[in-house]
Structure formats: C-alpha cells, structure tokens
C-alpha cells in the first residue's frame, strides 16, 4: 500500500489506493460514489446480481478506519443507489457496521442518486448536506462543475484513465487533481467507470490494486 501525499488548497492530504482521500488535519476521510444497495436495486428489477457487494463496501470502509485516524467520513454523494437500496438486508448490514463505530461522524453531501433514493435511514445517524458544503478551504460537492467559493472536491463522474503504451492498454480508476477542483474515483465495489480525457492542467493519479501512480507523460 502506498499513499501519495500532496497539497490541495494549502492543506496536506493523502490520496489512498483504496480510492479515498484522507485529510489528516481534520481527521476526515472523503469517499465518493459508494452506491450502497446498487446490487439490491438490480435484483428488485429482476436482474440477478450476487450478494456480497455491500459487505465488500463496508469491509473497505473498515480497512480505511483501521489504517487512518479518522473522526469523520464525508460521502461525496451517491451514498444510496436507488429507492430499492433501502432494502432491509442492506440496511441491517450497514447498521451492524455503524454499531461498531458509534463515535464516528458520518456526513453525506447529496448527489443525484440520493435525490431519487431518499435520505438514508435515521438509524444510521448520517448528517445530511447539500452541495457545495464548505469545509475549511474546501467546497465538498458531488458534481465537479459546481461553481462556488473554495476548492471543489467531488465525485460523480467515476473517472477512469486509459493508460496506453505501444502494445498494451489498461483502464484504471483515477484521481484528477486540477487547479480549481479534484475528482475522486468511485469507491463502490459495484460501480463502473467512465473514460475521460483529462484537462491539460490536471494531474492524473491512477489506482492499480494496492498502488497509486502519477501519470507524467500522456
């Protein structure tokens, strides 16, 4: 596991290979597009997706919490995939996890999926906010193109970078660090990605399993 330390808007942050961002000074973890209950929504519409994705998401959060000293997780939108994500089994798994982290503060900046899915159950004790949510020098958002004061950290696009050499090419989830905003990769275990062409000023960090790499030549 390597984390990459960098500075955003004057704050030291760590880009984590678990596809999240850690802000040590605020003891905060930022997670975008976890899409809880996406598999359950598919099942409700008659598409059989195996069980296990919620557990995997929760286990990934668990790992983050054991390796980083965090008092708070901020979800940058698309916490729940759809209404059907409020299914009892999905909720129960999340509550069990919540019970093990009673002190932890959870905050959700609503994303487009959350508007349709509705707010998560009150039992989860998630503080709700709308974008842009000001936090220190940052404006925490779901959509990266929100115009506002502050340096935007957002998700929504599930960015993927196409790494190509002469003979091979790979699609890898990535962080896009720009002058006015940073976009995080999708955290959820059942989420796809969208290839996009980074702007010239963007720094691209790709995630390959347990490692993060800066793309220097592209």
């Amino acid at each position: 596991m390597n984390a990459i330390a960098t500075e955003l808007a004057g704050e030291r942050v760590l880009l984590l290979p678990q596809k999240a961002l850690y802000w040590p000074a605020a003891k905060t973890l930022l997670v975008a597009d976890i899409h809880f209950g996406k598999a359950a929504s598919f099942r409700a519409l008659g598409v059989p997706v195996p069980r296990g994705t919620t557990t995997e998401n929760l286990a990934a959060l668990e790992t983050l919490l054991t390796t980083h000293d965090a008092q708070r997780i901020v979800f940058l939108g698309d916490f729940l995939h759809a209404k059907a994500a409020q299914a009892p089994a999905t909720l129960q798994a999340m509550l069990d996890w919540r019970a093990r982290h009673r002190e932890l503060e959870l905050l959700l900046v609503r994303g487009n999926h959350d508007w349709h899915a509705g707010d998560p159950s009150g039992l989860l004790r998630v503080t709700m906010a709308d974008e842009p949510f000001a936090c220190g020098p940052f404006a925490l958002c779901h959509h990266p193109d929100v115009s506002c004061e502050g340096y935007v950290i957002a998700g929504h696009v599930h960015p993927v970078f196409h790494l190509r050499t002469q003979r091979e090419s790979l699609r890898l989830p990535c962080f896009l660090l720009g002058t006015t905003r940073t976009i995080l990769p999708a955290f959820g275990s059942f989420t796809g990605g969208h290839s996009l062409i980074p702007q010239a000023s963007d720094k691209v960090y790709v995630v390959a399993d347990e490692m993060i790499f800066l793309i220097e030549k592209r």
């Binding site: 790494l163 050499t165 003979r167 091979e168 790979l170 790709v206 390959a208 220097e216």
Partner: peptide
C-alpha cells in the same frame, strides 16, 4: 487486433508500462 495475456501483478504491470512510456519519451 491483439490479445493480451499477463501473469504480472497489476501494480507491477502499470509500473513497467510507465517506465516504457518514460523511455519512449
């Protein structure tokens, strides 16, 4: 059209591809 076959770990493969790009540049 070319097929790929790899037994490298993903992170090793990415590291090698990046080295190749560096050399090519």
């Amino acid at each position: 059209f070319r097929e790929k076959l790899t037994t490298e770990r993903l992170s090793d493969r990415v590291a090698r591809m990046l080295r190749e790009l560096e050399q090519a540049a």
